[in-house]
């Protein structure tokens, strides 16, 4: 009996369960406050917004899992830059989709590679390396934007992101689901995944066991850049055209989504399923605050305060005594 109750208590404390129950509670609350909040079309819309944050958070999650203070502040810059690149290359024509996605992926991979090389070869702390890279990317954004004023999304991409694709669910959400499955497989079923956890929990031990830690860490940063690039590419499908520094609003929220999903910033523990729930939780929370029809000041205050309360549910640090 005690064992059963402890295992239930453990289950209830699982970040994924916490996040899912909070999402449900918030949806109920939203429906009570404004009927129609939890309607299926509204939920679809929420999921589309969450999926973009979720894709950024996938890369962030990988980098954080890899440990050694892994964090990627440059994702915001990559998202903005690839949104502009995508818009400029598509110019509203479907023929531009493939070149645009390839260009975005290459851009993300390139800057991720630079981050990874700085962090491994020169052993620059990830926070500093990616903070500096963020400045470079924001500068590059100015250069790229001044060439062509503003690009347009290809109609095919806009349809894929916003319109029902299969079983009434937009392609973007399918894509996110597929990324979720792939991430779970990658992390739990492949050698690469095991090695990510290995370097994240104890890098020295992993190195002694022959894990090529630097190579793995570099590929985590490359993947992070590529995920951010995919998100930037999809944003333009959602918004229709590129606008300035759209990625800034994803930088820290992508980290929050990872933390709310149960991956501690120290790395080595957690996974992407929780992060997906964390991303949905963040978006549902923001959406409820928008629905409440209070002014910006109250909305920000409530958002910050709720985040603080939510964080109390997750891996708090150990007390120094005992």
């Amino acid at each position: 009996m005690t064992r059963l109750s402890t295992s239930i208590a453990d289950l209830v404390r699982t970040p994924l369960v916490v996040a899912l129950s909070l999402i449900l509670a918030l949806l109920l609350l939203g429906e009570l406050l404004s009927p129609g909040f939890a309607s299926s079309s509204q939920i679809m819309r929420l999921l589309i917004v969450a999926s973009i944050l979720g894709v950024v958070a996938a890369g962030q999650n990988l980098v954080i899992l890899g440990g050694r203070e892994g964090i990627d502040l440059s994702v915001g810059g990559v998202v903005s830059l690839s949104a502009v690149i995508a818009g400029n290359m598509m110019q509203g024509s479907d023929a531009g989709i493939i070149p645009a996605i390839l260009a975005c992926l290459a851009t993300g991979a390139f800057f991720g590679l630079l981050n990874g090389l700085g962090v491994t070869l020169l052993r620059i702390p990830p926070l500093i390396m990616t903070l500096g890279m963020l400045g470079v990317l924001q500068g590059l954004l100015v250069v790229v934007r001044s060439g062509i004023p503003s690009g347009l999304a290809a109609p095919g991409l806009a349809r894929f992101v916003t319109q029902p694709f299969l079983f009434g669910v937009p392609g973007m959400i399918w894509l996110w689901g597929a990324i979720g499955v792939l991430m779970a497989l990658l992390l739990r079923r492949t050698l690469f995944g095991y090695r990510v956890y290995a370097i994240g929990s104890n890098e020295n031990a992993a190195r002694m066991a022959g894990v090529p830690a630097d190579l793995i860490r570099i590929s985590l940063f490359v993947l992070s850049g590529m995920f951010a690039a995919v998100a930037g590419f999809c944003i333009i499908g959602y918004a229709g055209s590129s606008f300035s520094n759209v990625g800034a609003q994803y930088m820290l929220p992508s980290i929050i989504a990872v933390v709310l999903g149960g991956t501690p910033l120290s790395g080595g523990k957690g996974g992407y399923t929780g992060t997906m729930a964390g991303a949905v939780l963040l978006i549902v929370l923001q959406s409820i605050l928008t629905t409440l029809n209070i002014e910006e000041a109250g909305r920000q205050f409530a958002f910050g305060a709720t985040l603080l309360v939510l964080m109390l549910f997750y891996g708090r640090g150990k007390a120094l005594r005992g």
Binding site: L307, M311, K318
Partner: peptide
């Protein structure tokens, strides 16, 4: 509350922005 400073001060920053 023993929270991670990066995420916790990001959240308190939002609270302060709300107050501002």
């Amino acid at each position: 509350l023993r929270l991670q400073p990066i995420v916790a001060t990001f959240a308190t920053g939002i609270v302060f922005t709300g107050l501002a």
